[in-house]
């Protein structure tokens, strides 16, 4: 079928297993998550989103490299994300403007998980949703602790 993902062995699933957000998920659960992701290809230097945009999706780096940067900060102050990392996670939790801009440093493949689809996942497959939520909370807690230790503003997460 033209748009079917089918049930054959999918290399994407192994890739998703390596993402900290989905570490605890079983293969069958990863298949469900995979059916919700949107794959997007970005060119080197292409902007992914602007600071202040209405954030709606979390992005997982499948390949390539992405930098996030706040507009009012020096050019050399950025966070870099590689394969298996994810960014824009606050968009899954609240309907708020993006706190940073994101740009592809090299040709990059991203997987986008939309908030509406994540909320549907929480309702329909609550065990998967709760595992992802827990992993998300763990990641945010780690970032918060790191920001406190380095005396950084936690809103820069």
């Amino acid at each position: 079928m033209l748009f079917s993902l089918g049930k054959k062995k999918n290399p994407r699933l192994a890739q998703l297993k390596g993402v900290s957000l989905f570490n605890d998920l079983k293969l069958s659960q990863l298949r469900i998550v995979n059916s919700l992701l949107h794959e997007r290809n970005y060119l080197e230097s292409e902007l992914i989103f602007d600071q202040g945009d209405e954030g709606q999706a979390l992005y997982i780096v499948a390949s390539g490299k992405v930098r996030t940067h706040r507009d009012n900060q020096p050019e050399d102050k950025f966070v870099e994300f590689g394969p298996g990392d994810f960014f824009g996670e606050l968009a899954l939790l609240e309907d708020a403007p993006r706190s940073t801009s994101a740009r592809a440093v090299e040709d990059t493949v991203l997987l986008a998980l939309f908030r509406t689809e994540f909320l549907a996942l929480l309702e329909l497959h609550s065990s998967i949703g709760s595992m992802i939520s827990y992993a998300l909370a763990r990641d945010l807690s780690r970032k918060l602790r790191k920001a406190i230790v380095s005396n950084e503003n936690p809103t820069n997460l």
């Binding site: 209405e54 986008a112 939309f114």
Partner: peptide, 23 residues
């Protein structure tokens, strides 16, 4: 297959408009 078909159609949306269009 409706949601997969929708995802297939969404691929045609340029990156710049992707997030806004999907919303």
């Amino acid at each position: 297959d409706g949601s997969q078909f929708k995802r297939f159609l969404v691929r045609a949306i340029p990156n710049a408009y992707f997030e806004k269009s999907l919303l």
